[in-house]
């Protein structure tokens, strides 16, 4: 157990190191990305450029620059933006993280519940109209771009039908932290949650149905039916339980990439100041410290999520426990 934990920790550090080096190098190899010009402003004199270059340490060798940046990012945490004159990036990320986390976690709950229900019902009624209808609905959900769906949702809930009893509870766009009370937090996020979840409900529902239908061909499902169990029990206790593996691995990846900034479009449409938006700003301005901070943050989540997925595997499948 301890050795597994240590191995996981070692992997995490390696992955983070690799990603940081890569991002750092890409940044310095990108034409037109010279940070000196950005900091010094337009038409700066060569003297100013030289002064800025020296002040920010851009005249030092790359490895030294890298180590200094990592030190300021992880140790002293006073890494400042190159663009927003002195804005500290670590607090920026720390402020944005709860917004994204709230958004993604809520959406994840919705999409897990909805897609398990959808996939299971479709598999139980496979071949019927209900099955086809649900799968069609899933396909529609997958095909709708999230920014379009979000705009439509905004149109409906914020303006067109805002006065009706149905949507009068929807507050204006933006985020309300949990410290302002759970109700405000919930009402601000309810619509973004649903919009973000739609795509994943479609994908997960279809994947789960496919896995369940192929599970019906397994010998152990026949045994379970031969035991005289009810169809529901066969499906849930034998089929669903063994079909969750793909579901869980998909979930780990999607959840991590969303928390790491992948929910950008949803964040923009609903005016949420999350990590996705922050990364986006960093990228347009080629603001290396900000990019570095958000990428590191996102990498931590991907590695963490994979660790959790591995743990869930252990719970789901005893064969993994025995290292088979």
């Amino acid at each position: 157990m301890i050795s597994a934990f240590a191995r996981r920790l070692g992997q995490t550090v390696t992955v983070l190191f690799g990603i940081s080096v890569l991002v750092f190098l890409v940044f310095f190899a990108t034409p037109g990305s010279d940070p000196t010009a950005r900091i010094a402003g337009r038409n700066a004199s060569p003297e100013t450029m030289a002064a800025v270059r020296h002040e920010y340490g851009f005249d030092r060798p790359l490895p030294v620059q890298y180590v200094r940046m990592m030190g300021r990012l992880f140790v002293t945490r006073d890494l400042a933006s190159f663009v927003d004159h002195g804005e500290l990036v670590v607090p920026e990320v720390i402020d944005a993280a709860p917004v994204t986390l709230s958004l993604v976690a809520g959406a994840a709950v919705i999409w897990i519940v909805a897609s398990v229900a959808m996939g299971t019902v479709a598999a139980a009624l496979r071949g019927t109209l209900v099955d086809r209808g649900l799968m069609m609905l899933g396909l529609v959900g997958i095909s709708m771009p999230v920014f379009w769906l979000g705009e439509v949702a905004n149109l409906v809930t914020q303006s067109r039908y805002h006065q009706t009893w149905l949507f009068s509870w929807v507050p204006g766009l933006g985020y309300a932290p949990l410290t302002q009370g759970p109700v405000a937090w919930f009402t601000h996020l309810a619509i973004p949650w649903c919009v973000l979840a739609v795509l994943f409900i479609g994908i997960y529902g279809r994947v789960l149905r496919a896995d369940l239908v192929s599970a019906y061909g397994e010998d152990f499902m026949r045994t379970a039916r031969a035991k005289g169990l009810s169809e529901t029990r066969v499906l849930l206790r034998h089929g669903l339980r063994t079909s969750l593996i793909t579901f869980v691995s998909l979930f780990g990846l999607d959840f991590a990439q969303l928390v790491g900034g992948g929910a950008l479009l949803t964040e923009v449409v609903f005016g949420l100041q999350g990590v996705g938006r922050l990364t986006y700003q960093g990228l347009i301005n080629l603001d290396l410290p900000l990019i570095m901070a958000t990428v590191m943050y996102s990498a931590v989540f991907v590695v963490l999520a994979n660790a959790v997925v591995d743990l869930v595997y252990l719970l789901l499948d005893p064969r993994v426990r025995d290292g088979l």
Partner: peptide, 12 residues
């Protein structure tokens, strides 16, 4: 059934 490996649910 023939193959007791596949005929029993692996996760229980």
């Amino acid at each position: 059934f023939q193959d007791p490996m596949t005929a029993m649910t692996p996760v229980h």
